[in-house]
């Protein structure tokens, strides 16, 4: 029903080519997260699906219907913006029912649908307020409510949580995931935050310079990143990369190990370094170790670990958790 297909889509602004040639299938009912650093083209892709941006060439299909040249309103999509994009002079109810007000639907129908959306998002008591009287999280819920009343086949989210503070972001992640399972519509979600991608997605698309680096389930990307870029982008803290002699020993040009897989030993190990700094987060401790050849190595250890800054530690690199890359691509074992 809400399947989205992009076929050989290109986009350039003047002479700058932002999306070189991109094909992507987003299955019906999935929660797909487009993730990548700023400027990777993820927002442009979303805006092309929405119809807010023209494609330079290629086709976009939603639900088997070619919508490449359709108006945004005729694509069966709804979009939620980072800035919420609420109308300041309208009440919450008017904002949620905006599309139906434009379509001149009967008052009773508008009230009913607005009420339903408000119930899903727990906004009933705020319907008469103006947006400026709401908190950031409430505003974003109103924007989502407006999207829900469109009853779209595809929801598009453009960094919807970036303007919220950290604790609210965590809460909204849960709410969005719940909303997805409740409504079941396809959701495409753009973010630069890999935590949002890992926690909400059932499919992640990692983008870099307008190209798809890898597409797959979150754990797939974590366990077997296809490229060095994905390996460095997914997971926090980022994966450590070793080049030089230790890489050639493993027959590759970059050897990647996640901080949580490096072992700390007092006596003997693969590498020896000095502890520069340690961040105790309670649940675990992030240790920054300096190695004379490989620079900084990040290690994640259990939270109650007591360490002396400046002391020497030995690190082990377990064979089952090594990621080998050559020319930026993963070497399959």
């Amino acid at each position: 029903m809400g399947q989205v297909l992009l076929k050989s889509v290109r986009k350039s602004f003047g002479s700058a080519e932002v999306i070189p040639d991109l094909s992507l299938a987003i299955p019906d009912g999935s929660f797909t997260v487009l993730v990548g650093p700023s400027g990777c083209g993820k927002s442009t892709i979303l805006r092309m699906i929405a119809g807010l941006e023209d494609v330079s060439s290629g086709t976009i299909k939603i639900n088997d219907r070619d919508v490449t040249y359709r108006e945004p309103s005729q694509r069966g999509i709804a979009m939620v913006f980072q800035s919420y994009a609420l109308y300041p002079h309208m009440t919450v109810a008017e904002n949620i029912g905006f599309g139906m007000i434009l379509a001149k639907r009967p008052k009773a129908e508008i009230n009913k649908r607005v009420g339903e959306a408000a119930a899903i998002l727990r906004l009933e008591h705020l319907l008469d307020r103006k947006p400026k009287q709401l908190s950031g999280g409430q505003r974003q819920r109103v924007a989502i409510g407006r999207a829900i009343t469109r009853d779209p086949q595809v929801f598009l989210f453009d960094e919807p949580l970036s303007n919220l503070d950290a604790s609210l972001r965590g809460q909204m992640r849960v709410e969005l995931a719940e909303l997805h399972s409740k409504i079941g519509a396809t959701m495409i979600y753009v973010t630069h935050d890999q935590v949002e991608a890992m926690t909400m997605a059932d499919q992640i698309v990692v983008l870099n310079n307008g190209r798809i680096e890898q597409q797959g389930m979150p754990m797939e990307l974590y366990i077997a990143p296809k490229t060095r870029f994905v390996a460095g982008f997914i997971g926090a803290p980022s994966m450590n990369f070793f080049e030089g002699s230790i890489a050639s020993q493993h027959d590759c040009d970059a050897l990647g190990v996640r901080p949580e897989h490096i072992g700390l030993r007092d006596d003997d190990g693969d590498l020896t370094g000095r502890i520069r700094h340690a961040e105790q987060l309670g649940s675990d401790t992030i240790i920054y170790v300096h190695h004379d050849d490989y620079g900084q190595i990040t290690v994640r250890a259990e939270g109650n670990r007591v360490l002396d800054i400046g002391s020497t530690v030995h690190l082990t690199l377990p064979a089952e958790h090594l990621h080998r890359f050559r020319n930026g691509f993963r070497i399959q074992d």
Binding site: L52, E71, P72, I77, M79, A85, G99, R150
Partner: peptide
């Protein structure tokens, strides 16, 4: 803000 116009386009104004 531009997004206000974009919402209007999506809603078919």
């Amino acid at each position: 803000p531009q997004p206000l116009y974009e919402v209007a386009r999506i809603e078919g104004a």
